[in-house]
Simulated scan of single mutants.
Amino acid sequence: MDGSVVPDLHRRLPGRGAWLHFDLECLRNAERRRAFPRALRVQGSLDVASLREHMEQHLATGQPRGQQVTGNKEAGRPVMSQP
């Protein structure tokens, strides 16, 4: 496992999932509360840099969307989905 959370734009990757509001404050709260490892049932912390970058890009262009974070067991890393 590489310990990162990545966008899954088409919601096609297999694994566990957890919803996240498309809000950077919600992301900060989830990190602070260690919600990703708990929801995705993984040990240790997870890198959310690509998730944060994805959210910042879409928020800058005014295209917020609902997000789902999914644990990808086959690829061995958690991923983020959006509808």
Rank of each mutant, 00 (worst) to 15 (best):
G76K: 08
P14V: 08
Q68A: 08
V5Q: 07
R38G: 04
F22G: 15
A30D: 10
V69M: 04
R38Q: 08
D47E: 06
R38P: 07
L40N: 04
Q68E: 08
A35I: 01
T70V: 12
A49Y: 11
G62S: 04
E53K: 11
G76Q: 08
E53F: 06
G3I: 01
R38I: 12
A35K: 04
R16M: 06
H58L: 15
S4P: 00
V42S: 07
L9P: 13
A18Y: 03
V6S: 13
H58G: 05
R32I: 09
L24R: 05
N72W: 06
K73N: 10
L20D: 08
A49H: 08
E31N: 12
S50C: 00
G3E: 11
P64M: 04
R77H: 15
V48E: 02
L20M: 03
V42K: 00
R52C: 03
A60E: 03
A18C: 09
V79I: 11
Q68D: 00
F22V: 10
R32H: 07
L40A: 05
E53H: 13
N29G: 14
H58F: 02
G76V: 02
N72V: 12
R65F: 11
P78W: 00
G66M: 08
Q67I: 15
R11G: 07
N29Q: 15
E53P: 09
P37Y: 05
L24T: 13
M1C: 12
G44D: 01
G17R: 11
R65V: 13
A49D: 09
E74R: 13
N29C: 09
H21F: 06
P64C: 08
R28T: 14
F22S: 08
K73R: 11
W19R: 15
A60H: 01
D8K: 12
E74Y: 09
R65P: 05
R33N: 10
G66Y: 06
A60I: 05
G71M: 09
R34V: 10
G62F: 02
D47F: 00
H54A: 05
L20R: 01
A30V: 07
H10W: 06
C26S: 15
P78K: 01
G15Q: 02
W19M: 13
P64A: 09
R11V: 02
D23I: 05
N72P: 01
W19C: 04
E56P: 00
D47P: 03
G66W: 01
F36Q: 00
S50T: 05
H10V: 09
R52P: 10
S4K: 15
G15A: 00
P78V: 06
F22C: 15
H10C: 09
Q43I: 09
M80V: 07
